[in-house]
Each structure stands twice: as structure tokens, then as C-alpha cells.
């Protein structure tokens, strides 16, 4: 399972690799450009932000935009740390619960026999490709009826069912040999013990992937704050930062200054993603490459 293609690199550099590099390196640079650009953009002082033609690298890098971001936050009644705190609570809860439920469901769908199993997986596949916006009104009504509007639960509950995570985790559990489970069963392990002691340790890469995908969906989610909450103190960082790039909710005074702040905000948003991904990338590579395609 751990055999990625990664270790097949040739030991030495040989001349016939050069043409391949000629293709790959420019494209890799090309793909990296926007990331470099957005970081540079965040570091530009005001006059450079509006320079035309736009500059790629900041000539006089400054942290002013970041400073403004947090300063304008303290102008409003709610400090930015409040939004960040909300985001962290919500993200941790959703990632944890969603991984937990997805592994349980993935284990059942993959290794157990029961009626409706095939249909349930089809439902998951349908949910995979459905546009979430279309069902936001009924979701709102459901949340209103349960009575969790304007609470953390309104952020958490709608996002827990992550079809992508379940799909990947189920594919990965499929590759755990049945013999292993049977052996555990013969030793007297019940389904919960098998789940905890056999399945979970074996599918760690899939869990890492599911966690990353869930994380980026939750961390970047603006919709739950927009629709299911009305008081500012319960909204998330993504929502707050989005008000700058949208230029609306916090007032039109932000429209000009907002350029720089929005750039700073998007850097703030993507750095946790980046760190998490770099941290877990080797496991992710394994899952993606092995999600049932072997």
C-alpha cells in the first residue's frame, strides 16, 4: 500500500532527462505564478497596487496591508480574533466529526453486508456532484426548525456529511484485505474493535486526505455564516475576510483600501491550507493515487 511511484527516481541525472525538464519546469513555474503573485500583491504599498500595467513583484514590500487588516478589524465592534476563534472551533469540530462518521460509514459500506447498501452509496455519489446552492433554502428551513439558527451547530451540522471524504475513505477500506478482518474476528474482536484497532490504523492516509479536503471546505466556507447566522459574533473568519473582497458589507470606505486588505486577507486564508497540505502531502499522494485505481 505504501508503494507510491515516488521512490522510483533514478539515482543519477542523465542527459536524456533534459527534454522532459524543458517541458515540465516552465509549466511548473507557470502554475506557481499566481501563488507568488498573490503573496507579492499582499505586500505591495497602495501606489503599487493600482499601478498600470500591474507589477508582478512588489518594489517596496510592506506589511501595511496586514496591519490595515487587523486595524480595521479593531475598528468594528468585534475583534478579528473572535472570527478566528469561531473558525477554529467550527473547523476542528467538523473535521473531527466528519472523519469519524465517514470512517464508520465507509467501513460499513465497504466491508459489511446489509440491505440498501448499494443504494446508499449511489446517494453519496449523487450528493458528490450536486450544487449546494440549490438546496440552501430547504437547509435553512431545516436548521430553523431544529432551532439551531445562529449557533455553532448551524455551522457544523450542514457540513459534516462530506461526500468526497466518504468516497475516498470507502475506496481505501476496500483495499484492506478481508482476511485481516477475519483474523481479527476469529481472535474475538467485535466490529467496533475491528474498526478501532484494524481499520483506523490501516487507512491513515485516507483519513489525512479526507481531513484536508474537509478542512479546506470548512475553513473557506462563507455560506453557513451568510445564511444560517445573523449575529456577527458567531460568524467565521472566511466570512469576515470575504467582506473585504466583496467590498460590500463593511461599508464602501473599504472599497479602495479593500484592494490591499483583500490581498492580505486571502494570504491569511490560504496559509493554514498550505501548512496543512505540506504537512500531510505524502499521505495525500498515496491516497489519491490509490483510491481504488490500482
Amino acid at each position: 500500500m505504501a508503494s507510491g511511484g515516488v521512490k522510483m527516481n533514478p539515482r543519477r541525472f542523465s542527459r536524456n532527462q533534459i527534454p522532459i525538464y524543458l517541458y515540465i519546469i516552465p509549466i511548473a513555474v507557470f502554475m506557481g505564478l499566481p501563488i507568488v503573485y498573490i503573496i507579492n500583491h499582499a505586500l505591495k504599498p497602495m501606489d503599487e497596487l493600482f499601478a498600470f500595467p500591474p507589477r508582478f513583484f512588489a518594489a517596496h514590500p510592506t506589511f501595511n496591508n496586514f496591519y490595515n487588516l487587523f486595524a480595521s478589524a479593531s475598528n468594528s465592534s468585534i475583534p478579528v480574533s473572535r472570527y478566528a476563534f469561531n473558525s477554529i472551533i467550527v473547523t476542528i469540530a467538523v473535521v473531527f466529526l466528519s472523519v469519524f462518521f465517514s470512517t464508520l460509514a465507509g467501513f460499513a459500506l465497504s466491508k459489511m453486508r446489509f440491505k440498501l447498501k448499494f443504494m446508499l452509496f449511489e446517494v453519496n455519489n449523487a450528493a458528490l456532484m450536486f450544487v449546494a446552492v440549490a438546496v440552501s433554502i430547504p437547509r435553512y428551513l431545516t436548521i430553523a426548525r431544529i432551532g439551531i439558527l445562529d449557533t455553532y451547530l448551524a455551522h457544523i451540522l450542514p457540513l459534516i456529511a462530506m461526500p468526497v471524504a466518504l468516497f475516498l475513505i470507502k475506496q481505501f477500506i476496500d483495499q484492506v484485505p478481508d482476511a485481516l478482518l477475519e483474523a481479527a474476528q476469529i481472535e474475538g474482536a467485535g466490529p467496533f474493535t475491528v474498526y478501532r484497532r484494524v481499520i483506523i490504523p490501516l487507512i491513515k492516509p485516507a483519513i489525512a486526505t479526507g481531513a484536508i479536503l474537509t478542512f479546506q471546505q470548512v475553513w473557506n466556507n462563507v455560506e453557513t455564516s451568510n445564511l444560517f447566522t445573523s449575529s456577527e459574533s458567531i460568524r467565521t473568519l472566511a466570512f469576515y475576510l470575504n467582506t473585504f473582497s466583496a467590498g460590500g458589507a463593511t461599508g464602501s470606505a473599504n472599497a479602495v483600501q479593500g484592494q490591499g486588505i483583500a490581498a492580505a486577507a486571502s494570504v491569511v486564508m490560504f496559509i493554514p491550507n498550505l501548512l496543512l497540505f505540506i504537512n500531510m502531502q505524502s499521505s495525500v499522494m498515496n491516497t489519491m493515487a490509490h483510491s481504488g485505481l490500482k
Partner: peptide, 29 residues
Amino acid sequence: NSKIRARALFRVVFFLPVIIATGPVMDEL
């Protein structure tokens, strides 16, 4: 998939956008 050095690194570079380029960041870009 051809035999080159630093292949793992390149694979990460090509997969990186999928991970970070969602939501507000992408909108901003």
C-alpha cells in the same frame, strides 16, 4: 511518469493548486 529526478516534487507542484485554490483565495485571484 518518466524517469526524472525530483519527480515527487513536481507531482506536488501540480497537485498543490487543487488543495489551496478554493473558496475566497480563488475568488480573490
